[in-house]
Structure formats: C-alpha cells, structure tokens
Design a protein around this nucleic acid. Structure first.
Length: 928
DNA sequence: CCCCGGAGCGC
DNA sequence: AGGCGCTCCGGGG
C-alpha cells in the first residue's frame, strides 16, 4: 500500500492466489473429458483453483461467498465499475440470489437491492450510486478510470495499456466469439487462461501506476474519502482540503449547493467569517451571473505569445515559473478573506491586507511540506525513495488543482473574481518577463505560454547557453518574493509551427552524460484523432527535419518516403490498423443533434444496433476507417456516411474498401505539409505531387508562394524588359573556338532595328539577328568547321544551366543584409528562423543585427527559368506582330522551329514543375 | 466565405 | 462533473 510493487514480485512470493469459477452455457454442456483435462493440468502445470458450478445462480453464490470469506479490502478490475459490478448485481437480481448472499460483495448487510440503473449516462461515469452503495466498506479500484486520469494514451483498453505500460501482449476475444470457446476442452482452457490473465494484468497495472499509494497520499492531504479519490473526484478533494482549512480557522463554510435546484443559487457561494468585520458575503455574483451553460469561457485565462515561427538550430532556452498560479496566490495574498468584493462586476483589486489569507497559508504549507519530502527523497533509496516521490507528487498535484476549482462553477468554493485575478496577474507577470528579457537583457523571446518563455540564444555552446539562462533567471527572480522562474529545458534544435504546436530536440543529462530526446507538443502526430498512417508519416518528416541533415538530404528523404507510402497504399500493403482513426464520444450517440455528420457517432450507432453493449456509449473511444464503395467513380456523401468500424470492413465481402485518396489527401498530406511549412525546397504542392495528388489544388497554400509568386497576374502584364530584368543570359559555347556567347532571345530577331526592345543586347544587335539566321558561332568566320550550333547543343545548355542554378539554390547560400557585415554562409541545415518577413538572424548576432537572405529565392529561380523559356518563345512573339510582318517571318519560323523546339520544351518542362511546386532534381535528366 | 459544433490538445 | 487558449475538421448557410 505504501509503495509501488510489481505483480511479478507478488506472484513470486506467493502472497496472492487466484481462482476461476466456471459454469456451462445455458442449454449447453461442458466439453467431454473437460474435468479430466483440468485435473491433469492441475498436476502438471500447477493450474490455479477452478471451481465448476452447474448454473449461473450457483456461480454467483459461490463468488459472493468467496468474496465474503476473503473479506477483500480492494476490488480491482479494468472497467470494473462500468461493467463487471453492473453485470454481477444485475444477474444476481435476475437469478434471485438471496440478499444475504449478494450483499457479501460489500461489507454492509442489506436486504433490498438498490436501484442499479444510472440516473444519467454521464461522461466518464463510473458505477452508479446504487452499485457503489452495494460495495460499501470495500475500496473500488477501476484501472480503466484511473488510467484515464493518470496517463495520456490514445486508447485505454486493457490490451493497449498492457502493451504500452507493461510491455505485455494481451489476447483479445470478441464477446460473440465466447460461446464457441465452450466447444472444446482446449479452447475452454484457453478462455479461462485469458480471464485469469486479464485479472492479473489489471492488478499489475494498479501496482505499476502506484494507484493505491498515490490516492492514499492525496486523500491524506485533502482529508476526503479514499474511495472517492480513487474515482477521480478532483473537485471534491479540493473541496475537502478547503473545508478543513477554513474550519480549522473557525470560519463558517459555504453551503453545498444541491445540483439541479436553481433556487439554491441564492443560498450558495457564501462564506461568512467568524470575524465580524468580514461578515459580508464574499463573491456572490448571482445577480450578474446566470447559470453557466456549456457556453464560452467565463473569464480570461493565460497569455499565449505569438510564436516567431520557424526552425531553430542553435540553443533555445525554455524557462518557466514554478507552479505559477499557486505562487501568485501566495505572492499577492489572494484569498476569500483578503479580497474586497467588487459590487459592479468589475475585476477585483489586489488585496492590501497584511494578514496572510487562508489560501496562501494553505499553499505555503503544501509547498514547505513538499520541499521537506524532496529533501528526504535525495538521501533515501529503494522503496522509501519511491514513497517520498509519490508523496511529493501528491503535494504538487494538490497545490496545482486548487486554482481550477476556484473557477469551477459548481464548486462549493466557486470564486470567479479570485480565479480572474489569478490569471490576470499571470498575464502581467509573463508580459513583464518578456519585456525584461527583450528590452533590458536584449535577448530574443520566440514564444511563451502562460508561465513560460522560450529564448533563442543564438549560441552553439551549451555552457554559454547555460550562463545566459542563469543570468535571465537571476534578473527575473529579483523582482518577486515567492515567484520563481527556472530553467526547464535546453533545446538543441526546435521547430516552432504555431501556438501550442512545436517540437524540439531536448538535451538532457544522465550521470553527467548528455543525450537527446525529441519533445512533441500539440502537433498532429501526438493527437489520437489522426490515423497511425498519417502520424507515422509526420513522425518520419519531423525526425528528418530535426536530424540536422542537409536541406537536400532531408527534402529528398521526405519526398521519396512519401512516394513509397503512396505506392504501398495503392498496392494494399498497409495493414488496416494503420488506417484507424479514433474519436471519443462525449455524449451517448443518440444525443448528438448533428450526429448524421459525425463519423464516430454513426459508427457507434451501428455498433449499438449490432448488439454491442459496451464500447459505444458516452466516454468511450470509437475506432473507424474512412471507406469508399469499391468501383464507385465518385465519393458522394459526407465523411460520416463513409466511416466504418474496422470489423465492419472485415466482414462485408469487400463492397467497402479503404478510401486511399482520402488518406492521401486528407490525412497524410495535411499532416506532412504543416510540418514542412518552413522547409525550403518543398511545399504543399510538391508534397501532393509525391503522394500522387493533383498538385495544382495546393498551389496557393504556402505563404511563401503567395508573397512572391512570380507567376501571378502582376508579373504577366510586365514587359519582357522589366520582367526579366537581372536575369542571367543563356550562355552557348562554340565547339570550334571554345569561346562562349550569350544566346539572344528570339524576340530580338523579330524586332526591327528601329525598336530597342532587347534588354542587354542593343550593342550587338547585328550579332543577334545574325545568330538566329545562321546558327553559328558569332566569333568564328562563316562556314568554319564545327562552328554550327545544333538544336541539341542549345537544349543541353538550357538543361545544364538550369541544373546549376537549382543546385545553387539548394546549397542555400545565405548572405547577411547588413552592409557592414555581409556574412556569407551555406546553411548546412534547413534553417529558416522566425517569420518569413523577418528572415534569418545573422550568425554574427548579437554583434550584427542583420538578417540572412537567401542568395537565390524561389522567385528568382523561377524568374530565371521563365527567362529561358522566353528566349525560345517564338509563338508568343509572332502573336504580337501585325499581319504584314507576320507573313514575313512565318517563313523564317519554319526554319527556326526545329532548332529551338527541343530547347523550348526543355526549358518549359523544368519551369512548369516550379509553377506548382519545386524542381524535382531527378527530372532534370532530359534526354536530348 | 464565414460561422458553428466537436475534439483534443497545451498550459 | 476542475479552468481557459488554440488549432483543426467538416458541414451548413
């Protein structure tokens, strides 16, 4: 009870034993020779006690008597309060088990069976009050409910938890498969084994999570009932904590409001003081506040800073205030007993009282106790250390849950003004900390949420980063009495996508040795409402992005991974499990007003219809996959209509199949695109292309392509001169004399000598016209051997120069825009810091305040490639001419076309890839 | 296009 | 039966 213990320890020491009670199915018999098999097994494997009863009634009798004889203190089971107890008592009722027998399930003798049905199907509800009353005197430990409270998992089924927590496999048997298990001795023994294993797994889970020690500590701190703590009841724990605290100081506590009665509002929320001067009702705002329905928030919460998005590759410091809200309560002496009630609904002011309030003192006490326990923890070891650790956790949990209950409408100690004041102070503290760090210490704050700030150090040296952190901590902590900021982490690399969405490589130390851990916060890949397939793809991208590899490699790896995924999907090589999406029902499926549009509701309704009694009511998580009708051309109908439970798919003879297109476009693509939003060299259109989707649909999605998309309408109205200003000419080399010259745009050939249309070619117009007439090196004398320029040569040059340009782009050379600095670097990683407008902070920061700009931007590369197209775009030139001159040139064109067609096609092919996405290097090998 | 309900995160 | 802040999806008007 005091400390954690593994089930294997218990099993070894032989303290615990198990037994199974079995009965034959109604109208059936046990397999022939079953009893003999059991006896054999008992001798051979030491099989545990098996009791065989002839009827359900006898079985229940036997079990109840066993429980009574054992006089068990704790009943443990996975979803025992939502299923097992319910079944046992309902069947006892139906089988007319005498009251003297069924009441042995608890320690209170009863003569009448209470109402077992739940009043309302509550979200995450445990057993009904009627059932709970039956087990009076025993503790109930539902490992399902406790796991949901203590862990953050995608699924809380015993199977999943056994895997994730205990690293053990659990065999699942569907309810409708159970009768078949009674067919043979072997399968029946197997069924018995599964039943016993489940009992052990649940027990082991209880020990693994230290449920008994932790809830006992929590209960000791708050002074409520242990059984209630085990059922969750966080609000009730805080209620008892405060009841004891105020009672000890001889305050009269507020009445407990009775749930549904509206008239009780007038009498609740009162806190009269024993002190005459404080006898006013504090914080009764019933005249302004209606009974809050599940509408919007009642008051403002924490401050979340606008993140400076991007990928950071130098140390980022994460600082946060230790227990911000409990500290604020102490720092500003916030309590029912110290705050003046504002009558006009305006926010309350900070108290001026010099007498320490009840809440601050209570918290101070909790904090001091925790400090003490933690100091003992340092010198303790083994079981003692584990106990201290649990106690320390319990103290922290209690202190932290107080604030939440002040803002909880149905709490006996509901105090919106206090909760509001706490969060308001929190916002001020965070903002002034940011101001201090940014304006006084001159450091760059890139993000912060409620009680934390992240500082981009710009440093490569972790020791220097630590020194910087220490300096900040010192300066911030100067300002407060009880409030304390501390270093919570050092990130080597960090991808900051949105508010509450980021990932980072955290540097940690074990025995003085550093190691790295990837932290993921809020990203799609940590959410259970995305398919495993999408999350695995996202995970892969994230690891690449945070790997520190070169831009080319990362982009290349991601692209080829996606192509492989698409291929595997289309080949049916991905198992069904990876397509499963999970969503929790917050209500009974029938209660959804717009249930028709919600996939998980539709699936749950069908589950209920097909006879499932569990796993499809409020609080349960529903698994489903999105399907389409095999052979159907279009997928009309909403997503909800096409959602199926994985089992439905297995048994429907293949009419419904996985909707691959949905998973590519609505699962993998959005997840991956969001992660790659700041990665140069790829974009949503390019990623869509890898997944075999219509890339043009995603073209406008990147902010980058919006801000400088050269193919926008604006660019097309410019004259060629302006449009291609600054572009590099296409260089051609003569094979005879090895001299190189610029290939003039074909436009120059069509323009009359009077016009000065060409941009950089005015000085040698003769040569230009000459070139398009002769296709010869301008330097070599006429008819020189090998001075002819062939169509293949031109096309090759286009290809080669485009390749060079793109490779330069991929090298990602960055130049500082500060004239004094002009620092040039090749960004070895794909580091884009901060907002796109901000650009990248110069590595010389803070000596230099400049920003790195890309030597070649996507727009510039695109422009250059467009220029290459323009050089050979004869058709476009012709269209601009009047009819007289058109006739003149058409004859010439027939001669020229064969020369330029290949080059034009080559240039266009490369350019058009960019028009929706980015250049795929592999595709540059145009055959000539 | 905006707005809404629902879910599930972060703190 | 703890709080608010913030995406993100899908559907309807």
């Amino acid at each position: 009870i005091d400390g954690p213990m593994t089930a294997s320890e218990l099993r070894r020491s032989g303290i615990l034993s198990s037994f199974t009670i079995l009965r034959k199915l109604e109208g059936g018999i046990l397999p022939l020779g079953f009893m003999k098999k059991v006896d054999d097994k008992k001798i051979k494997d030491g099989m545990n006690a098996l009791i065989v009863e002839h009827s359900e009634r006898a079985l229940l009798n036997c079990l109840m008597n066993k429980l009574c004889k054992l006089d068990t203190d704790v009943l443990v089971g996975h979803n025992i309060s939502g299923f097992d107890l319910d079944v046992l008592l309902h069947r006892s009722q139906a089988c007319k088990v005498p009251s003297g027998v069924w009441s042995r399930i608890g320690r209170l003798k009863r003569s009448m069976m209470p109402k077992l049905t739940k009043g309302t199907t509550l979200y995450g509800s445990g057993a009904s009050p009627g059932i709970m009353s039956c087990i009076a005197g025993r503790l109930l430990c539902d490992t399902y409910l406790c796991s949901r409270d203590l862990l953050k998992e995608a699924s809380y089924s015993l199977t999943e938890l056994s895997r994730t927590q205990l690293n053990k496999n659990r065999e699942e048997i569907a309810p409708h498969d159970i009768p078949a298990k009674f067919q043979s001795s072997e399968s029946l023994l197997q069924l018995i084994d599964c039943g016993e294993t489940d009992a052990w797994l649940s027990l082991e889970l209880m020990f693994h999570l230290s449920i008994l020690p932790l809830t006992r500590q929590l209960t000791n701190i708050s002074g409520n009932l242990w059984g209630k703590t085990m059922q969750g009841a966080r609000a009730q724990r805080v209620e008892y904590l405060l009841l004891h605290a105020f009672h000890a100081k001889k305050y009269i506590v507020p009445d407990k409001s009775i749930g549904t009665s509206k008239s009780s509002i007038a009498t609740k929320k009162r806190l009269a003081s024993a002190d005459v001067e404080n006898r006013n009702d504090l914080h009764t705002d019933e005249h302004t506040e209606q009974v809050k329905s599940k509408k919007g928030p009642a008051y403002a919460g924490g401050l979340v800073l606008e993140p400076k998005k991007g990928l950071y590759d130098k140390f980022v410091l994460l600082l946060d205030f230790n227990s911000l809200y409990p500290s604020i309560i102490q720092e500003y002496n916030l309590c029912f007993t110290t705050i003046e009630r504002s009558l006009d609904g305006l926010p309350s002011c900070l108290p001026s009282s010099t007498i320490t309030g009840v809440l601050p003192e209570l918290l101070k006490n909790l904090v001091e106790r925790r400090k003490m326990v933690k100091s003992w923890l340092k010198t303790a070891s083994g079981l003692k250390a584990q106990q201290f650790d649990i106690q320390q956790q319990a103290l922290k949990l209690t202190a932290n849950s107080l604030y939440g209950c002040l803002g909880f409408t149905n709490s006996r100690f509901y105090a919106k003004p206090i909760a509001e004041l706490i969060t308001s102070q929190g916002r001020d503290i965070l903002q002034s900390t940011v101001d201090l760090v940014q304006n006084v210490l001159n450091l760059e704050v890139i993000y912060g949420d409620t009680d934390s700030i992240m500082i981009y150090s710009g440093l490569d040296d972790i020791t220097k980063a630590r020194i910087m952190a220490a300096k900040v901590i010192q300066e911030v902590n100067k300002k407060y009495r009880r409030l304390e900021i501390d270093l919570d982490g050092i990130y080597k690399r960090m991808l900051l996508l949105k508010k509450k969405k980021y990932a980072a490589v955290k540097v940690q130390f074990k025995d003085g040795k550093p190691y790295e851990v990837i932290e993921r916060k809020g990203l799609d890949i940590v959410r259970r409402d995305w398919s495993l397939l999408a999350k695995e793809s996202g995970e892969m991208c994230l690891c690449q992005i945070l790997s520190g590899g070169s831009c080319d490699d990362v982009v290349e790896t991601i692209h080829s991974y996606l192509m492989k995924v698409q291929q595997d999907m289309r080949n049916g090589e991905i198992e069904l499990e990876k397509y499963v999406i999970r969503k929790t029902l917050t209500k009974s499926p029938e209660e959804y007003p717009d249930g028709r549009n919600q996939a998980h509701v539709q699936v749950a309704l069908r589950m209920k219809q097909s006879g499932f009694s569990t796993g499809c009511s409020a609080g349960d998580t529903i698994s489903y996959v999105i399907c389409c009708v095999q052979g159907a051309i279009s997928n009309s109908g909403g997503i909800a209509e096409r959602a199926r439970h994985p089992d439905e798919l297995k048994t429907n003879n293949g009419n419904w199949i996985i909707d691959i297109e949905y998973y590519l476009s609505q699962q993998i693509h959005p997840v991956v695109s969001r992660l790659c939003a700041f990665i140069q060299g790829t974009d949503p259109a390019r990623l869509a292309d890898c997944l075999g989707l219509d890339a043009s649909k995603f073209q406008h999605k990147t902010f980058e392509s919006i801000s400088n998309d050269p193919s926008s309408v604006l660019a097309s109205v410019l004259d060629a001169d302006d449009r291609y200003h600054g572009c590099e000419p296409l260089r051609l080399t003569c094979q005879s004399c090895s001299s190189s010259f610029d290939c003039p745009p074909i436009l120059t050939f069509f323009s009359t000598s009077r016009d000065s249309t060409a941009m950089d070619f005015e000085n040698n117009k003769e040569t230009n016209n000459d070139f398009w007439r002769r296709f010869c090196c301008p330097r070599c004398p006429e008819d020189t051997e090998g001075s002819k320029i062939t169509s293949a040569m031109i096309a090759n040059q286009v290809k080669r120069q485009a390749e060079n340009l793109i490779s330069l782009y991929y090298k990602g050379i960055m130049i500082c825009d500060d004239e004094m600095c002009k620092h040039t670097t090749r960004s070895l990683n794909l580091c884009v810091l901060g907002d796109s407008e901000r650009g990248t902070v110069c590595p010389n920061y803070p000596q230099c305040n400049g920003h790195l700009r890309k030597q070649y931007t996507e727009a510039e590369v695109y422009k250059q490639l467009s220029y290459f197209c323009h050089i050979f775009d004869a058709k476009h030139c012709i269209e601009k001419l009047d009819s007289n001159r058109r006739v003149l040139f058409e004859k010439e064109l027939k001669r020229i076309y064969p020369m330029i067609n290949l080059a034009f096609a080559t240039a266009q092919k490369i350019r058009d890839r960019c028009s929706y996405g980015w250049v795929q290097l592999n595709d540059l090998s145009v055959s000539v």
